[in-house]
């Protein structure tokens, strides 16, 4: 890794547009147990672009509401603030995560699809284990691979070396990134999260999503983000050429008391939900 490459990566992180203010405000509100539905509605109501997009999505057939939604208040009442938050976040990351990441062999649209699937899976896992911070779990899942859009070019340039290392066996794609490039997409993603001033729990989940054992003390959202990512990669939701070259941390599953059948059920549920969200966005 040359100094010029490091500079280029740092520049790319700085140049990446921040998440819109509405997303940041919603994230704060949902991590605060004292906030009300009204607070959420107030944030969205004054953002005409988000309001228009939200109403369009809510009124798409795949969301399955029986009557037309005409206001943010209606949407919040019928879908719940959590679902509204998810739709707004998914909409706000669609452009950024939607472009193709050729270095990783990820076609257009696939990284966004993978990210939404992981977000839905982490959220379901967090809910099934009655963990707190379900909203943070969703965001951690949605942004876990944000580092890939920064590292894409570097991975593409050195793909042959990375692939060779991976094929020799026993080395994961992440470990190969570290060895050839000097850092992983998870570490770079965490830098992006810090720059965006995301809550610490989310930055942690991004940083350790492939190596939950290195997060000390161990953390539920980190473990669940790892597991959700593994489920989605395994199934093949929106992965690239790197998809099958990641390591499963069985200890994370044990720590969270998760059985294989639970993961399979979550995988099945997420596929159904993902299809409905995809349709809503088309």
């Amino acid at each position: 890794m040359t100094a010029a490459t490091v500079d280029r990566i740092v520049q790319k992180i700085s140049a990446l547009p921040r998440l819109p203010m509405t997303s940041m405000r919603l994230m704060q509100l949902l991590s605060n147990p004292d906030s009300s539905v009204r607070d959420v509605v107030e944030v969205i109501r004054f953002d005409p672009v988000v309001t228009a997009e939200l109403l369009k999505i809510c009124n798409s057939a795949s969301i399955g509401l029986m009557r037309k939604i005409e206001s943010v208040t209606d949407a919040a009442r019928l879908l719940g603030t959590n679902r509204i938050f998810q739709l707004v976040m998914a909409a706000h990351t669609r452009t950024m995560l939607g472009s193709s990441q050729d270095g990783y062999g990820i076609p257009a649209g696939a990284l966004w699809k993978h990210s939404v699937a992981v977000a839905l899976a982490v959220e379901r896992l967090a809910r099934s284990l009655a963990r707190e911070q379900v909203g943070q779990a969703f965001t951690a899942g949605l942004l876990h691979d944000i580092g890939k859009i920064i590292l894409n070019t570097s991975v593409g340039a050195d793909y042959a070396k990375i692939a060779e290392l991976v094929k020799q066996g026993g080395v994961s794609f992440c470990e190969a990134e570290k060895s050839i490039l000097g850092f992983t997409h998870a570490e770079i993603g965490a830098r992006v999260g810090e720059r965006w001033e995301l809550p610490e729990a989310i930055v942690r989940a991004i940083r350790y999503h492939h190596e939950p054992e290195f997060c000390e003390p161990h953390d539920a959202i980190v473990d669940l983000t790892h597991i959700a990512d593994i489920v989605c990669l395994q199934i093949g939701v929106g992965g690239g050429d790197d998809a099958m070259y990641y390591r499963i941390d069985g200890a994370a599953m044990e720590r969270q008391g998760l059985k294989l059948s639970t993961l399979e059920t979550v995988g099945a549920e997420v596929i159904v939900e993902l299809k409905s969200i995809e349709k809503a966005f088309h």
Binding site: S172, Q234, R247, I248, L263, E264
Partner: peptide, 14 residues
């Protein structure tokens, strides 16, 4: 029927 790197065969859906 592929699988991730899973030495212990924990998650062998493939």
């Amino acid at each position: 029927g592929a699988q991730l790197l899973d030495e212990k065969g924990i998650f062998n859906i493939g």
